[in-house]
Design a protein around this nucleic acid. Structure first.
Lengths: 188, 188
DNA sequence: TGTACATCAGTGAACGCGCGTTCACTGATGTAC
DNA sequence: TGTACATCAGTGAACGCGCGTTCACTGATGTAC
């Protein structure tokens, strides 16, 4: 294979970002190589730097993409529960505190799956902005003011701990306890 | 330098674990090399495998050490507030949700700082046991039953997010919101 | 208590490997006429 | 609409580097007598 059409090239770039958004959440930024990412998108690693300035630049784009997926999911929930944010939120929490979500980080909440990596990114890392924007929007969707931020904290903490505690009975317990705490917080 | 006394050798091994417990929390397991760890303990990297079976084995020991430090801290709080767990807990929360704690992960809560790495450890990783034991003990100290687990979730989530959001106004807000949520949860 | 020597904690060079990144090359795409 | 050729998306080999791990060596420690 050699040169492809411009439309195909745009699609290829897009697929790299999609795969990065998935794999960075699943294995961590340091756990995925440029070659892994390109292979996941069906390409060889040599062309990477034709499309991205660096791995760091892709981390920023993939972070934005992962939160864009989350925004879409929230919009779908709203359209399935028109004028009923409480109902939409209940459906989100059903998913959020599920064993399936715990076991599939690659398709799950980016605030949690990328949180540990983001905490160690350089202060000027270009990924920090899309991350902060994403968390802000997620918190606002959950509840007004600081209640939303507290909810995100409990949700992200419970999910991260349930993954770190996988294999222990605590893994399921922390999900259940987190859910009760969030529901009480938003109700109260 | 060459052979040292057995007592010195034990001290050296101990210092490597202490430095690992600090550096793994600060930079992540993948962010610290064996050579970094040995250098931090004032040694050269060659001798590492005389004292540890592998880097993975050290991760397990360092995880245990980090939680041992936490247990000591909690015991100190109890002895400073005899028969007054509420007072001890209030002092812990003052520290936990502080900017200083956010900015010094190496000396801070291992449940949070090691959580992201632990979530991606292999299911049979020897580090999972000391991690789970540590989280269980921390939760029990905070409150009875699931209330303690919910508190750890909110605390770990708020601290992780505040680090990931460093540089944004949300960083301080999520700490404050997390603290209010924990206090309401434990009081309720 | 003193001597002779085996042990072994720590050193530093080396190993194979995979990383992020670069680059000369290929050949289909896109365009100028 | 058809031809000639410049462009450039993707390839695959190569780069320097740092990783986890191994190993021959050194010389002070610990022990047997």
């Amino acid at each position: 294979m050699a040169r492809v059409s411009q439309a195909q090239a745009r699609q290829n770039r897009d697929r790299v970002i999609d795969e990065a958004a998935r794999l960075f959440r699943e294995r961590g930024v340091q756990g995925v190589s440029v070659a892994d990412l390109m292979a996941a998108a069906g390409l060889t690693h040599g062309g990477f730097y034709k499309r991205f300035a660096s791995k760091e630049a892709l981390v920023a784009e993939a972070t934005g993409r992962a939160f864009a997926e989350l925004r879409e999911r929230l919009a779908e929930l709203d359209s399935r529960h028109p004028g009923d944010r409480d109902g939409a939120r209940r459906e989100l929490l059903d998913f959020y505190f599920s064993a399936g979500h715990r076991d599939r980080a690659g398709e799950g909440c980016p605030a949690t799956a990328l949180g540990g990596d983001m905490a160690r990114e350089a202060p000027e890392s270009p990924a920090r902005e899309p991350y902060a924007d994403g968390v802000r929007d997620f918190a606002r969707w959950l509840a007004d003011d600081d209640e939303g931020l507290a909810a995100v904290a409990t949700m992200a903490g419970a999910l991260m701990l349930s993954r770190a505690l996988a294999g222990s009975p605590l893994s399921d317990l922390v999900l259940a306890a987190g859910r009760r705490a969030v529901e009480r917080g938003i109700a109260g």
